[in-house]
Simulated scan of single mutants.
Amino acid sequence: METQRTRGPAALRRAAVRGARAGALAGLLAVLLAGCGAAGGRQAGAVGAGRAFERALASGDYAAACALLAPETREQLEQDERQPCPRALEGADLPVSASVGGPRVYGRQALVRAGRDRLFLSQFADGWRVVAAGCTPRGEQPYACEVKGG
């Protein structure tokens, strides 16, 4: 086995370059894997918030559903309906689905399918919040949403 004392200067330089390349490759791999994990975490977080919102609606726990709304969405709903959020959500007659999935995450924004309904979510410091619910596609037009922020 060769040791550093018996190697010449050229052999030492080649070893250093190989070590630097291996380190750079390992660093790049770590960044790529972390990025994939972060995207997966965002998708799971968005779907989890969507499921929690749908479960709250299905069980009639409108206070819990309101807690999952983005602050501006909650304020807009209360202003539009002129009543507290839980009563306003109850009266909104939003579609409810046990099937939540198919997330499309774009940075801190997400679109989650809940049956035929669509939920739009945003990631806040304390987690994902629903910014629009009861949304249906309208072809080339923007989605029509029953509940949305201002």
Rank of each mutant, 00 (worst) to 15 (best):
R55F: 06
L32P: 08
A114F: 11
G41N: 07
G48R: 11
L89K: 04
Y143N: 13
L32I: 03
Q43S: 14
E81K: 12
Q79H: 06
D126R: 11
A10V: 15
P84G: 03
G127F: 05
L111H: 09
A58T: 02
Y62F: 14
R129S: 11
G115H: 09
G150H: 09
G41P: 10
G45M: 03
L28Q: 01
Y143H: 15
R21D: 13
L57K: 00
D61W: 07
Q76G: 01
V47E: 01
R14D: 13
G149S: 09
E78F: 00
E72V: 09
V100K: 00
G40W: 11
P103C: 09
T6Y: 06
G27N: 03
A56E: 08
A63C: 03
Q109T: 09
P86T: 04
A20W: 13
G41A: 12
G102D: 01
R13N: 05
A144S: 14
A34Q: 12
A22Q: 13
A56K: 03
G127A: 05
R5P: 06
K148S: 14
L68W: 04
G134E: 05
A49Q: 04
G50M: 07
C66T: 05
V147H: 06
A67E: 13
G50L: 09
A114H: 02
G134S: 10
C85H: 03
A38D: 02
A67Y: 05
C85L: 02
G134P: 10
F120I: 11
E140A: 15
A70D: 15
G48P: 01
G35L: 14
Q4T: 11
Q141R: 15
G91N: 08
Y62H: 10
P84Y: 04
G27M: 15
E54A: 09
L57V: 07
D126L: 13
R116I: 02
A114P: 09
S97I: 00
G48S: 13
G50D: 07
A24W: 06
G45Y: 00
E81V: 12
A34G: 12
P137L: 12
Q4W: 15
G35Y: 06
T136R: 15
Y106L: 12
